[in-house]
């Protein structure tokens, strides 16, 4: 499916893929309460994706529905940040991924909330409330795991060391980003400042790593995890293309 690269697609794809990863945690969390919390965040993300795909559909003259976008595109046609497709290796990965995402998404939608595009500004207002809640949840868990036990600290540090590799691309802004985001450099500086603060208070580090030759999500590049995620998610509409669900 050929669709125009668009900032809405990036945001929508990032939401749906992270939503799917969190849905994987349903009946796999450390407590039942946490199953419910992660499901809630997942539901917010699916709802957000749906709204954003509706805008995309409108822009493309209603050729496709949100479900077409979700269920009928392959890896190379998806434009989510690679951070969110990383797997749930353990609960520390879930929390680290969520926290890094939440700080980023909160700043992105804060900037978009003053966008001239009325649809986008409207959605951003609603989304911000959801992200603020999710942020509190993920930050609290960063503190708990970082300061809890030696084991939890080690696990969280390990998760961070892996996930940080997928952070650089967030800030490799292209022209499209710059059209929509009011202040790209500010986004980047706030992100690093805040993440570093929380890491410091949680007894965690942002370890340096050598420059990576990793291609940009903006061109539909992914880690190998992505194909497996899609093959599960898209199974039914792909297997029964004539069926209505």
């Amino acid at each position: 499916m050929k669709i125009k690269k668009h900032v809405f697609v990036r945001l929508a794809d990032t939401s749906v893929i992270l939503g799917q990863r969190l849905a994987e945690m349903c009946s796999n969390g450390p407590t039942l309460e946490e199953d419910i919390a992660l499901s809630n965040i997942s539901l917010d993300l699916f709802g957000r994706a749906d709204e954003l795909y509706k805008i995309v559909a409108k822009l493309e003259g209603d050729k496709f529905t949100p479900d077409d976008y979700v269920f009928r595109r392959n890896e190379r046609e998806y434009y989510n940040i690679k951070l969110v497709e990383q797997p749930n290796e353990d609960f520390a990965w879930v929390i680290a991924r969520q926290f890094l995402h939440d700080v980023y998404a909160r700043e992105v939608f804060t900037q978009l909330s003053s966008s001239k595009n009325a649809d986008l500004a409207g959605i951003s207002q609603k989304v911000l409330k959801e992200i603020k809640y999710s942020y509190v949840h993920s930050k609290d868990w960063m503190n708990r795991l970082g300061l809890g036990t030696e084991e939890s600290n080690t696990r969280l540090q390990k998760a961070l060391d892996h996930l940080m590799k997928y952070v650089d691309e967030l800030f490799a802004f292209d022209e499209l980003d710059k059209t929509y985001l009011a202040d790209c450099e500010k986004l980047k500086s706030i992100w690093f400042k805040e993440v570093d603060e929380v890491l410091l208070e949680s007894n965690l580090k942002r370890n340096p790593f050598p420059p990576l030759s990793m291609r940009d999500y903006r061109d539909g590049f992914h880690s190998e995890h992505m194909g497996h995620l899609l093959s599960i998610m898209q199974y039914l509409p792909r297997a029964y293309p004539d069926a209505k669900w």
Binding site: D35, S39, F46
Partner: peptide
């Protein structure tokens, strides 16, 4: 994870979430 539409995915997730809540 294999729900065939965004809607059915949200509905099923909300339902399973309720079940966790009812367990509690």
């Amino acid at each position: 994870l294999r729900a065939p539409s965004l809607r059915s995915k949200q509905v099923l997730l909300a339902k399973i979430q309720d079940e966790a809540g009812h367990g509690l």
